[in-house]
Design a binder for these strands. Structure first.
Lengths: 350, 350
DNA sequence: TCTATTTGCGCAAACGTTTGCAGAGACGGT
DNA sequence: ACCGTCTCTGCAAACGTTTGCGCAAATAGA
């Protein structure tokens, strides 16, 4: 249809100067304008269908009311609820979100970061950082605030909101222990990711506390949090020397892959080997067997990250917590059972 | 860190005019600049860490290299793969995506549309339109191209890329028929959505072609595509007068809800009643029973929609297909079985 | 009534680009 | 040697806002 209607058009229409129109439409500056003019300008704006041009105002004010959200992979159903949490605070505050996938590729992440900055985002929520992430740490973003969500970078200085992964893993491991398992393997996430190492460490420490022995090969690392890697790791475990009665997986998708592998090998979960996951992504209650997992507060992770970012954007000098940790809880379904007697006997022999 | 470095800075550094710098950095205009200057400018730009300010360029050129994506709900796992498809074409072309959820609320959709326009998006992919959608139809977007994905609006003039829902429903229904079912109910989507009515119509027509009788109440409408509504509809069906041996659902989430309802009522799927879905969202192969459903090409829907939009943005006067329909295929899992003998006998009585 | 203050508005610059136009010099053709 | 053409670069305006400053009129204070 017609060209954009601008402040100038309204100015012409109402017979006042464009700067006056601008002020009349700005709830802050409005107080220095007579009520009568404000009224006239507002109705004119409405009638003419005025829509502010955020490009222009952004150019002038250096604020675009846009934030960037970086995800490893939006297809991972862990993230959509987080996004909802983010938007639940950012949208009421007037911000739009531009979304990018990094595919866990550092180079890509760097490129995407550049792109977000080019577009002038006011802040960034990064749910896809590697533990050491030069583009984030080096403050390439200039003074654009960044917070990480769900993961964190090793270096200090980038606020993060994450989950209490250590106690989640501990709870899962204890649950397996309590069910009678003594030979438990860990399918770990990538060492390049904070979630990968903190979960692995938590596994090791809890195992030690429980006096579990961790034979060589009881922990197998994966490169990505996906079903294929989970399957691969599980196969390695099944075919390896050790005999395990349970797989504690660093993530639900790994667990799903592990269960597939078991099935393919003619093994039953949980009868032959118990499996646990992490995150509690949607639909896990419908699958068979229902996956016992650690539920994280996905929505809240997003919400808190956004609130943090909002504060950083609005009051650049305010202090914010460097790490905020959200609670988790174990949700017990059907993928954990007592180990088979044979296995238990083997335990006793050892 | 330091302030943005601008063309002006590079100009000062290299001793040429800012307009020359601009041209030297623009692969089109570059040919009118001497190689030597281009070289100098480029290295200076690199060294100084120049990043183009898209706000400023967008203001001047009226192109922001951003597109808007409107979804009903990103939490619905149907959409992330579509988004991937969209980005697979838009990102290489240099576009960033700003994403909004409409929650299937028309007012919200209108607001979000405004917001996208305020931000100056070059085009919009709307995966959340209602059948009659004033904000879309009225071309409020001015000359910003819009295409709908997965759904369409009734009115002509808005290009859509959708799936061949009619044959998908037909295939599902025939599959049930071939398994021996004769008393089949349909849990339908919202009448306000193109997917809701075209699937319901396809159900009715195929049923007629198969000489199935559709008693009063055999089709129950839902308001939203979610598990809760599916459960509600299934309960109505179970508690109603008719006795059905199969539920053909307009969508996977409805089907999931229906299966829950059956389970709650002590009924088994598929032994007591068979169920089919639509879309084939992820993880459906892991659930129990594996849901027989109609697979749509989610990624491709996104990809084609983006390609269409790209064409419209690049060549505003080019003709584009008003509807492009992608093929579907039935994926058979475990949620359909032959009806119980008792039911079959009841059939014969009738 | 005269000065001091406040109120309401206009002026113009600025944000960082892009681009039509024009001018200067180089160069080739006659 | 002259003219025309081409190549390269600079100039300045424009995109639509916001905002510091200043001016005039209105108001208050004495």
């Amino acid at each position: 249809m017609a060209r954009q209607v601008t402040l100038k058009d309204i100015a012409r229409e109402t017979g006042v100067h464009v700067s006056t129109v601008s002020r009349a439409l700005d709830s802050n500056a409005r107080r220095s304008i007579s009520a009568e003019v404000v009224e006239r300008v507002e109705t004119a704006a409405k009638n003419m269908g005025y829509r502010p041009n955020r490009l222009a105002s952004g150019l002038r004010t250096r604020r675009t009311m846009m934030v960037g959200i970086m995800l490893p992979d939006i297809t991972n159903s862990l993230f959509p609820p987080m996004i909802r949490g983010i938007e639940s605070v950012l949208e009421p505050a007037g911000y739009a979100s531009i979304l990018v996938n990094t595919d866990n590729d550092d180079r890509r992440e760097a490129r995407m970061l550049q792109m977000l900055l080019n577009h002038g985002v006011d802040g960034i929520i990064d749910a896809a950082p590697s533990r050491v992430d030069p583009s984030i740490e080096n403050r390439e973003a200039g003074d654009v605030p960044i917070v990480t969500a769900n993961r964190r970078v090793d270096a200090a200085g980038v606020p993060a909101v994450i989950s209490d992964e250590a106690s989640g893993i501990a709870a899962a491991l204890r649950h397996l222990y309590d069910a009678g398992h003594r030979r438990i393997a860990h399918i770990a996430g990538s060492d390049a990711l904070s979630t990968g190492v903190t979960r692995r460490r938590a596994f090791e420490e809890t195992a030690r506390a429980l006096n579990l022995q961790l034979p060589e090969g009881a922990i197998v690392s994966t490169l990505r949090y996906d079903e294929g890697e989970g399957r691969r790791a599980a196969e390695a475990l099944i075919d390896g020397d050790g005999v395990y009665t349970a797989f504690l997986c660093a993530n639900d998708r790994l667990a799903l892959g592990a269960i597939e592998a078991l099935r393919d090998r003619g093994l039953n979960c949980p009868a032959d080997v118990s499996v646990t996951g992490f995150n509690d992504i949607p639909l896990l209650d419908h699958i068979s067997p229902g996956l016992t997992t650690v539920r994280i507060l996905k929505f809240e992770v997003g919400r808190f990250a956004a609130e943090l970012l909002l504060r950083m954007m609005l009051e650049p000098d305010s202090q914010v917590p460097s790490i905020t940790t959200l609670p988790v809880n174990l949700v017990i379904r059907e993928s954990v059972a007592a180990p088979r007697k044979a296995a238990r006997d083997a335990e006793k022999m050892a």
